[in-house]
Design a protein around this nucleic acid. Structure first.
Length: 574
RNA sequence: GCGCCCGUAGCUCAGUGGAUAGAGCAACGGACUUCUAAUCCGUAGGCCGGAGGUUCGAAUCCUCCCGGGCGCGCCA
């Protein structure tokens, strides 16, 4: 629909004392399809012209109704609104042509022009199990990665592993007290997790144990051999396990660069802050005072000389800019860290890095239980692996019941089960907290990935049968002729929805919200399903049948590539 | 105590300051000899947390209050 909008902006800008850029944000979508595709409300002009908005709409309509532009068929004034009706067959023809030939996204969405965008996402903690809580960053980040890539950006995905910090001191302390090498090797991550939980239980009220943990971390930072050896082993075990999960989720990273990677650079960062005159000593620690900006001070170094998370984040940001010269960097990290990122970006700015303004925190809400927060420390957590296994096995059962002859049942069950989990996280506005409920995760009806996948599979099934009947070709009709034949309400509505694909992808990227795309795909699927129920394709004869096949050929890439941008597979049968 | 986020149908949520507030789930009633019923059609369901304000116009912007969540120098 971008083409129609562009045209309207151009014409209205000629008629009014407004630029195209001023007209664009005023345009809206009318509430009913009978009111056209794009509306221009005239209220805003009423004051300036000292006229009734209704009259303005009427005059504008009169002035431009004579014009026959490429993409609109007619203009109507309805009350204070100017309603534009799309030249449906023209739009339909072009959209279908572009979609079928594969040129659509390149033509309308390539806005990235190879700019580098660093995306920091997932970042699970070493020595802790991959819980459902880590899914959000992973899935949202990966989807943004795919959306940016589809739009011609050069995304760089970085997994900022939590492989450093005082928790390793605690873990080493726990291991050296109660450690069991055999148990560790048997089921490393769960065992380490158990130790971590034990530590916190024991440390509650035992200041000595806490002290021991801090002491071990200090040793680790100093390069103590025993400490480093254990830490190294913990990292290897965890990473191996994480990679299995990423493989299942069909998620990859360009770089695994954990917090420890920046250890050598920390002194320089602190030194640089001194040089710039923004660091000072306070109660034995080195801090950057941010009171002027309404933020709490940023601690670069603790009084015992150990570094902090934010020091490593500063080093990481600087390193990434040197390495990638990004035009934008996204941190897909929970909303509870908003303050941390405000401090981080402010300190970078005070250090004199102009690119600090291109750093963006992409926050999301927490996953919680009905009765409270999930806490790794308390062992109150749901394992992602468990969720994945349940979803896949439910998908498999469903296939056994509905389509037992399907080939590659395991693969399809995986695509559907994992798709459902990912989609559940992507469908809602990321800022909202979500309550974890098994029933919801395992629901495959309504606004879910299986709904969209099912629409896609049915669509593919028709195209496949058509190909079998016609030999290698699906259909032979010319697309411009096809577009003219698609006159039923359900057909037209579907075409118009397809035309919104580019608008949607761009909006999702601008807002860093995959949910916008996910919702759109459900809309398209719903329109496809309505079409499916009211229009027979293979049962039809002649040109109409051919035209409908063309429509399906155009709809297929929207669903397939849309799902792909969410990181969800689109099986051809299910 | 201070700061940030959220509050829309029974539940989960959409809704760039604009026309009659929309989906899904759950409930109820329909549609499989016909391209896959993981679907579709219909019914019912609302003081958009509350009160003020700004505006021609507010679910949307501002202020206050209520409810929930999160954070607030030596965790990440």
């Amino acid at each position: 629909m971008l083409r129609l909008k562009e045209e309207i902006c151009k014409v209205l800008a000629e008629q009014l004392p407004l630029s195209r850029e001023q007209v664009e944000p005023l345009l809206e979508t009318p509430p009913e399809p009978e009111m056209g595709e794009i509306a221009f409300p005239c209220f805003a002009l009423a004051r300036e012209f000292k006229k009734n908005p209704k009259d303005i709409a009427a005059e504008l309509a009169k002035d431009i109704s004579g014009r026959s532009e490429k993409y609109w068929a007619r203009v109507e004034n309805r009350g204070p609104y100017l309603n534009f009706f799309v030249n449906y067959s023209k739009l339909g023809r072009e959209v279908m042509e572009e979609l079928v030939s594969g040129s659509y996204l390149t033509k309308w969405c390539s806005r990235g022009s190879n700019q580098v965008v660093v995306i920091d996402y997932s970042a699970p903690n070493i020595a802790k199990p991959f819980g459902i809580g880590h899914l959000r960053s992973t899935v949202i980040g990966n989807s943004l990665y795919r959306i940016y890539r589809a739009m011609g950006y050069k995304p760089v995905g970085i997994n900022h592993l939590g492989d450093w910090g005082t928790q390793f001191g605690k873990l080493i302390a726990a291991y050296s007290r109660w450690g069991d090498k055999k148990a560790l090797e048997q089921d490393p991550v769960n065992y380490l997790y158990g130790l971590y939980v034990d530590f916190h239980r024991e440390a509650d009220g035992d200041e000595h144990l806490e002290q021991e943990g801090r002491e071990w971390f200090r040793k680790l930072e100093e390069g103590n051999e025993d400490a480093v050896k254990l830490w190294d082993a913990f990292c290897d075990f965890s990473l191996e396990e994480f990679k299995k999960i990423y493989h299942m989720l069909d998620i990859e990273f360009d770089h695994y660069l954990g917090e420890s990677f920046y250890n050598e650079q920390l002194d320089r960062v602190v030194e640089y802050a001194w040089q710039k005159g923004i660091a000072k000593e306070s109660e034995g620690a080195i801090v950057v005072d941010l009171e002027k900006y309404g933020l709490p001070p940023c601690i670069l170094k603790k009084k015992d000389g150990a570094t902090l998370y934010i020091t490593r984040d500063l080093a990481a940001a600087i390193y990434r800019y040197q390495e990638f010269e990004f035009s934008q960097m996204l941190y897909v990290v929970g909303a509870e860290q908003t303050l941390h990122f405000q401090q981080l970006f402010k300190v970078l700015e005070l250090m004199g890095f102009a690119w600090a303004e291109n750093c963006v925190h992409v926050p999301f809400g927490l996953i919680r239980f009905k009765d409270g927060k999930m806490s790794t420390r308390e062992g109150n957590i749901i394992l992602l692996k468990e969720v994945i296994d349940k979803a896949i096995s439910l998908a498999f059962q469903t296939i056994q019941g509905k389509n037992p002859d399907l080939k590659d049942k395991e693969k399809v069950a995986e695509a559907v089960g994992i798709g459902a989990i990912k989609f559940g996280d992507l469908y809602h506005d990321r800022i909202k907290d979500v309550e974890f409920e098994w029933d919801r995760v395992l629901d495959f009806s309504g606004e879910t990935a299986p709904y969209v996948q099912y629409a896609h599979a049915r669509l593919c099934s028709i195209l496949r049968r058509a190909r079998d009947l016609n030999g290698s070709r699906v259909c032979s009709i010319d697309i411009s002729e096809a577009a003219m034949l698609l006159e039923k309400e359900e057909e037209k509505t579907l075409v118009k929805h397809l035309a919104l694909f580019a608008d949607t992808v761009i909006k999702a990227q601008k807002n860093q919200k995959p949910s916008i795309l996910a919702r759109y795909l459900v809309d398209v699927s719903r329109e496809f399903n309505r079409f499916y129920h009211s229009c027979s394709v293979l049962g039809e004869e002649g040109n109409l049948k051919e035209a409908r096949l063309r429509l399906l050929e155009a709809a297929r890439p929207v669903l397939r590539e849309g799902l792909q941008m969410l990181g969800i597979k689109a099986p051809e049968e299910m």
